[in-house]
């Protein structure tokens, strides 16, 4: 090893400082929101950096949890995430397994259908009219059905299944196993890491998506968490953008409530994030469509 020069040492020092600063800037807005959510309206109105709450007040959370709509929205979001993810994994695996076999008939035309679906988007108005024609407006099924299959996930699974040794499936076949049995007893257990990655992305997607709630759902009791939050955020944007003239306690009550609602919305993601980070990072490498 060549000893590092003075210049390199100085660079290394400032580089470390700078990157720690970048990390801090990335999470500071979250700390601020957490801190405001735990503050009283009077404390939130104080101009400051609010890195941590000076004294903890749960009044904002009490108001958030007093709202019955939150529970409904939370329930709807959890339901769509669980059912939507499980459904997507099953439908996608069932689609990908035959497409990964060499003797699958009609493989090329089906693959073309899949790839064109990925490249061309019919747009939101035709999709809206289609969903309306199916009578899915204001129906919770609209959260799940359209996203059960995604071309991108199919291609990831097809490539990953292709990499498994074909002899495994052939010998199972000789033992009299049906294709469904092979998929659920052999392929799926062998593909846990890639299924975890695809499933986690699908779950985060379900948790965060909101256009379907905005466009297709009218009743409050069927609404999802993101839209519930969006309404609160839009309201608080209005009160904040009215500028300096309007610094009454009301608008800061609304800021603490917005912050508390945000924290409640992202809590599940924050809780699982440290454990599943590696799967997400793996996911970005799976993106190749080739193979």
């Amino acid at each position: 090893m060549i000893k590092s020069t003075l210049g390199e040492k100085i660079f290394s020092f400032f580089n470390t400082i700078f990157l720690i600063f970048v990390a801090f800037v990335s999470v500071y807005p979250l700390l601020y929101t957490l801190s405001i959510s735990l503050s009283s309206a009077a404390e939130a109105a104080r101009m400051g950096f609010h890195l941590y709450p000076r004294e903890i007040s749960l009044s904002a959370y009490k108001m958030v949890f007093a709202n019955e709509e939150l529970y409904q929205a939370y329930g709807n979001t959890i339901a769509r995430t669980v059912l939507g993810t499980a459904g997507a994994l099953i439908v996608t695996s069932m689609f990908a397994y035959p497409m990964s076999r060499s003797h699958m008939p009609l493989k090329r035309p089906i693959m073309l259908i899949l790839i064109f679906a990925m490249l061309f988007d019919g747009g939101i108005i035709p999709l809206y009219l289609l969903i309306k024609n199916f009578g899915l407006i204001d129906n919770r099924l609209v959260y799940i059905l359209p996203s059960l299959i995604s071309a991108y996930n199919c291609i990831i699974l097809i490539n990953s299944f292709k990499a498994l040794p074909e002899s495994l499936m052939e010998s199972a076949k000789l033992d009299g196993a049906s294709e469904m049995t092979i998929l659920f007893r052999i392929i799926i257990p062998l593909s846990k890491p890639v299924l975890a990655t695809v499933g986690l992305w699908a779950a985060v997607g379900h948790w965060n998506t909101w256009m379907d709630g905005l466009l297709y759902i009218n009743s409050n009791d069927k609404q999802i968490l993101q839209i519930f939050l969006q309404r609160i955020v839009k309201q608080s944007q209005l009160s904040m953008e009215s500028g300096l003239t309007n610094v009454d306690v009301m608008s800061y009550t609304s800021e603490t409530i917005t912050s508390a609602t945000i924290m409640v919305t992202i809590l599940p993601i924050l809780l699982v994030y440290p454990y599943i980070q590696k799967y997400f990072v793996k996911g970005i490498m799976l993106g190749s469509v080739k193979g």
Binding site: V91, T92, M94, F95, Y97, P98, M99, I110, I113, L114, A117, F120, G122, G123, P126, L127, L130, L145, P146, L148, I149, A151, C154, E179, M180, L183
Partner: peptide, 17 residues
């Protein structure tokens, strides 16, 4: 096995077309 996924694809991705 491909059928459910294919149908969903045809309905929700090709239907809008």
């Amino acid at each position: 096995m491909v059928l459910p996924g294919l149908l969903l694809l045809l309905v929700f991705r090709y239907g809008p077309i």
